[in-house]
């Protein structure tokens, strides 16, 4: 129970950060990427300060033997740079540039009750499900061959 309350509180802090920084607002996000038009540099300060706090915080936190509510830290094991990483990231960037939402911006934006974030998140879930199915089918074929 304490564990779920903690996760909810941490999610709330994340959502507050996204909303206060303006990153739930597609107009602001897209203007960061419009260097030759209505440029708004806010996003670089958002990512920079988030990165700085995380970089310093992780140094302290990951020195401990284990997190408070789990037996171990769950860190990604994958190290290799492959085609899905680069092609997938490129596709993500194209989608971000079209709609102005990234996953972290869209989820808190759902709280606005406006249709835009809802359409985006529904389509994104469709994309996640489709891509996961496609990947599973590909690996099955590879295993059979």
């Amino acid at each position: 129970m304490l564990r779920l309350a903690s996760a909810t509180a941490i999610g709330t802090v994340f959502g507050l950060g996204i909303v206060i920084s303006g990153m739930a607002n597609p107009a602001k996000v897209l203007n960061f990427f419009d260097l030759f038009g209505t440029w708004d540099p806010s996003l670089v300060l958002v990512m920079g300060s988030a990165l700085l706090v995380t970089f310093i915080g992780y140094r302290f936190v990951l020195k401990r033997p284990a997190p408070a509510f789990d037996r171990k830290f769950h860190l990604p094991a994958k190290q290799d740079v492959d085609l899905p990483l680069i092609a997938g990231s490129a596709l993500f960037g194209i989608g971000w540039g079209i709609a102005g939402f990234c996953p972290g911006g869209a989820i808190p934006a759902l709280g606005s009750g406006q249709p835009g974030p809802l359409i985006f998140v529904a389509a994104m879930i469709g994309g996640i499900l489709g891509a996961t199915g496609l990947r599973a089918a590909f690996f099955r074929r590879q295993a059979l061959a």
Binding site: P84, L91, F120
Partner: peptide, 18 residues
């Protein structure tokens, strides 16, 4: 918005993050 959401969903799944 719909097209962007679809591309983002596919992209972050293969790219493993956002």
């Amino acid at each position: 918005v719909l097209l962007g959401g679809l591309l983002v969903g596919i992209g972050v799944t293969f790219g493993g993050g956002c």
